[in-house]
Design a protein around this nucleic acid. Structure first.
Length: 579
RNA sequence: GCGCCCGUAGCUCAGUUGGAUAGAGCACCCGCCUUCUAAGCGGAUGGUCGCUGGUUCGAAUCCAGCCGGGCGCGCCA
């Protein structure tokens, strides 16, 4: 059990004795080490509701408090209860964590099934930097949820059926370069897409031809279906290369096309059940009237007052849309996969869309714990959102290449004799890109800048990886064996105690990451841990210390390297042995 | 017009859900490599947390109103 939970339990008992009834007493890591290791504001909160003096209440609680020798408690200010943990407690706790393969992290998921929808690029287009957020965030959340005991289904809902296929089909038939296709399929698809896209702008005839190709495809024309199939396969192979580099795997790739057959019947079902009706030629889902207007995602207010803001599920021309596919997808995930929760890792602009989908799904009887895990936009230098459609967008593959290139330069400079330099540059460079994304609050918009995303010093993945590397280096130079399982720890130096203090907090940090789906809290924790380690490393020699001190410090090093490697692993970032 | 998000050090950003003297990184300045990897460590400088009120023992955090920025509001995804 984490120290935090032990203190909460002891404090709850003490409050129970004093107040004569069961209460919860939350304990958090102290804001400032001068106040102790942990603090509780429970006395102030409880005194308020009971109209008693908080300091007095805190005093009685401290008298009744039994910390079992883990530490000492005192009162401060208006009624804070501060807990100071004894170094021996940290020493013992560190030894316990070394024997625990979960590193102190409780499994809170309880086997519940959660479907995570992330990345979802369009086929026949490369991934741009804009895709980085959903892809990396979604993967990290998948790893975290899995470790916390959820049954995770990672689903890549690729855009394999959009209207862009009209242009691609027409381009394929009129100007495909077979040699270029063999060389670099995705690039060739992009080339014809762009060429036709440009042509449609000033030639209505081309536009009509594209539309005709799309209609033929949707009607099941064999030739067009075969071309479409080929395009999707080639695109998937291209995407897989990037996912391999990013070390990302999906359990399913059920794209839009997978739900095609369901769309027509779904719309009919919605009409039959009175969930949707015709309006201006289109079939729309409107407000239920069950909610007050201000809570209803299908109603928004404007000059004329409350107005319907429907989700269109069938166009006037009979075509289906984004909302239709998303509803079919919900149905499949709830009925076939028995999803208890569905998380959508999609940008914040689509908030309204998801509120409508979630509400419509519930009224339809397809209920799950829906979560739109929104994130902010990546902006260009002009502070405008990077548009996927504009041609000057930066490709994700180029960002990765540049990151690895820069990491390679640093290695050549600092450690020219390093073996496997190429492989390590890949681990470091890609780690840097991932960490730049994950260390930030997900809702923050940011301007894309090479130097910022590819920084290798300061609060970055390489900083964390470097602390791991320093530890591995110690163990390589260690003569004779060391058995972490039988290590006896005694902590004397401030740097030792502080390192142990942070190691104890890993199990307190990981479970809260999913409260609001924020991996950046883990990034913050890991940076703090690595800072503590680097300070320790400078202040406390390990190999040259007396045998008992040495073993104690080796135990700290061992646990630190395990937590760093594990924590980075939850973010999808690997650790090299040397760098 | 209505809704959502944002405004914190010169720059980029955190801030454990209302706690104590608001923290990191970058940049700048001063120190530290014959001792376990200097992608590092120690120190210095740097803030009216957009503005004004309110709620209370206590507000960067919650509420209201302004100012500034981003995004979204019927047949794209």
């Amino acid at each position: 059990m984490t120290l935090q939970r032990q203190f909460e339990s002891a404090l709850a008992d003490a409050f129970g004795k004093v107040l004569g009834e069961k209460t919860d007493a939350s304990v958090v890591a102290a804001a400032d080490l001068r106040f102790g290791d942990y603090q509780s504001n429970a006395a102030m909160a409880l005194a308020k509701s009971r109209r008693t003096n908080p300091r007095e209440l805190a005093g009685k609680v401290i008298e009744a408090l039994d910390l079992g020798g883990l530490g000492t408690a005192d009162i401060a200010g208006p009624g804070f209860i501060n807990i100071r943990v004894a170094p021996e407690t940290y020493a013992r706790h560190t030894a316990e964590l070394l024997a625990d393969e979960r590193l102190g992290v409780p499994a809170i998921g309880d086997g519940r099934t959660v479907v995570i929808d992330f990345s979802a690029p369009n086929v026949a287009k490369p991934m741009f930097v804009g895709h980085i957020r959903s892809t990396i965030l979604g993967d990290a959340l998948s790893r975290i949820a899995r470790f916390l005991g959820f049954h995770v289904i990672a689903d890549n809902h690729i855009g394999d059926w959009g209207t862009q296929f009209g242009m691609i089909l027409y381009g394929w038939k009129t100007q495909l370069d077979e040699a270029a296709l063999a060389e670099d399929p995705v690039n060739e698809l992009v080339r014809i897409y762009r060429a036709i896209n440009a042509a449609t702008k000033d030639d209505p005839a081309v536009r009509e031809s594209c539309k005709a190709e799309l209609v033929k495809l949707q009607a099941g024309d064999e030739e067009n279906l075969a071309i479409w199939n080929r395009c999707v396969e080639l695109s998937k192979q291209g995407l897989q290369k990037i996912y391999d580099r990013l070390d990302i795997r999906f359990d399913h790739w059920l794209g839009e096309s997978f739900y095609n057959d369901r769309l027509g019947p779904l719309v009919e079902e919605f009409i039959e059940k009175g969930l949707a009706r015709e309006s201006e030629g289109a079939i729309c889902v409107f407000a239920s009237g069950e909610l007050p207007d201000e809570q209803d995602p299908f109603r928004i207010q404007n000059k004329e007052g409350w107005q319907d803001n429907p989700a269109i599920i069938r166009k006037a021309d009979g075509g289906f849309l984004y909302a239709t596919t998303d509803l079919a997808t919900v149905e499949y995930r709830v009925d076939e996969w028995k999803a208890d929760e569905i998380w959508y890792v999609v940008g914040v602009p689509q908030q309204l869309h998801f509120r409508q989908i979630f509400d419509a799904s519930r009224r339809w009887g397809k209920d799950a714990g829906f979560r739109h895990i929104a994130f902010g936009s990546i902006l260009g230098e002009d502070r405008k959102v990077l548009k996927t459609r504009s041609g000057d967008n930066v490709q994700l593959a180029d960002v990765l290449d540049e990151a690895v290139e820069r990491a390679g330069q640093v290695i050549a400079e600092k450690n020219p004799d390093l073996e496997n330099a190429g492989e390590i540059a890949e681990i470091v460079g890609i780690g840097a890109v991932k960490f730049a994304e994950l260390s930030q609050h997900r809702l923050t918009d940011y301007v894309f800048a090479w130097d910022r995303m590819l920084a290798l010093q300061g609060d970055t993945a390489p900083y964390l990886q470097y602390s791991y590397v320093r530890i591995r280096s110690i163990f390589r130079k260690l003569e004779g064996g060391f058995d972490p399982a039988s290590a006896k720890l005694s902590l004397h130096e401030d740097a030792e105690v502080h390192l142990a203090r942070l190691l104890a907090r890993y199990g307190e940090t990981v479970p809260v990451l999913l409260d609001d789906h924020r991996p950046n809290l883990l990034a913050n924790y890991l940076l703090e841990l690595a800072r503590a380690f680097h300070s320790f490393f400078e202040a406390c020699p390990v190999l040259k210390a007396e045998p008992e001190v040495r073993d104690s410090r080796l135990a700290l090093c061992e646990l630190t390297s395990r937590v760093l490697e594990h924590g980075l692993g939850l973010l999808g970032i690997r650790c090299p042995e040397r760098m």
